[in-house]
């Protein structure tokens, strides 16, 4: 195994991530405004911004889903039980002892088991819930069928609200976890530049050298 600097996040994925981050920030800010938690911007513009950001994110998502499945990247987000306990033990205990994280980032497995499980939950449950409830909320007048629909809308609204707060909680934990391990900057940098130091087997290294040399930073001359 050799440590090599590899482009783990291609341009599209980085663009996707940061667009999504920005849009989720906008959605959180405007969503809290619309639900009445703060009044930092007027209500009407908040609704408009919330709707526009949601529609934009929906488009980004369609592209991202297409990309995930065509490139096979979707496998990154499949959860695995293996190693989960060790990871959980690390964050609950080992981290305070200065232990090394039990999990090393690999090219085909960028997430640790806890991360993978979290993303799986988000992508398969929370995001669909917020999308479906949000779209129902937005298109109320198309499916509304009178007085009973008000109750349905109230349910839809509360589901949307709860899912939004779950995502809010995720964002907090997500940002906090960037400060662990090698530190905040080291964690954020790959998502900016695309490159990260990764352990590669000689076979992988040879594969990259031969097939996608642009994904591999050339070895620096020995110091």
């Amino acid at each position: 195994m050799t440590k090599r600097i590899v482009k783990v996040y291609p341009r599209f994925e980085r663009l996707w991530h940061w667009t999504q981050a920005l849009l989720i920030a906008v959605l959180m800010f405007t969503g809290l405004r619309v639900s009445g938690v703060h009044a930092l911007i007027p209500f009407g513009p908040a609704v408009m911004l919330h709707t526009l950001a949601a529609l934009t994110l929906l488009v980004v998502w369609i592209f991202a889903t297409f990309w995930l499945f065509t490139t096979g990247t979707w496998r990154q987000f499949l959860p695995k039980v293996e190693g989960m306990l060790a990871t959980a033990r690390y964050y609950a205990y080992g981290i305070f002892k200065g232990e090394e994280p039990p999990y090393q980032k690999q090219y085909w497995r960028k997430h640790n088991p806890l991360q993978a499980a979290t993303y799986f939950g988000l992508k398969w449950f929370v995001f669909p819930v917020i999308w479906i409830s949000g779209i129902m909320y937005l298109t109320y007048n198309f499916w509304d069928s009178g007085a009973d629909s008000t109750f349905v809308l109230a349910v839809v609204r509360n589901i949307h609200l709860l899912a939004a707060y779950v995502i809010f909680a995720f964002v907090i934990a997500h940002i906090y976890l960037l400060t662990t391990g090698h530190g905040f900057r080291d964690h954020v940098r790959p998502m900016v530049t695309g490159y990260e130091e990764i352990d590669l087997t000689p076979e992988q290294e040879a594969y990259f050298e031969a097939n996608t040399p642009d994904r591999l930073k050339p070895l620096e001359p020995a110091e």
Binding site: V34, S35, G36, V37, F43, T150, L153, A154, R157, N158, L161, L162, A164, Y165, V166, F168, A169, I172, A173, Y176
Partner: peptide
């Protein structure tokens, strides 16, 4: 259903508690 009139509804409160607990945990 009028958004903005009850930020502290039952579900709003549940969500806020979840966020608060996450923040405290972190």
């Amino acid at each position: 259903v009028m958004p903005g009139t009850d930020p502290n509804s039952l579900f709003g409160r549940l969500g806020q508690i979840l966020v608060l607990l996450t923040a405290l945990g972190v």
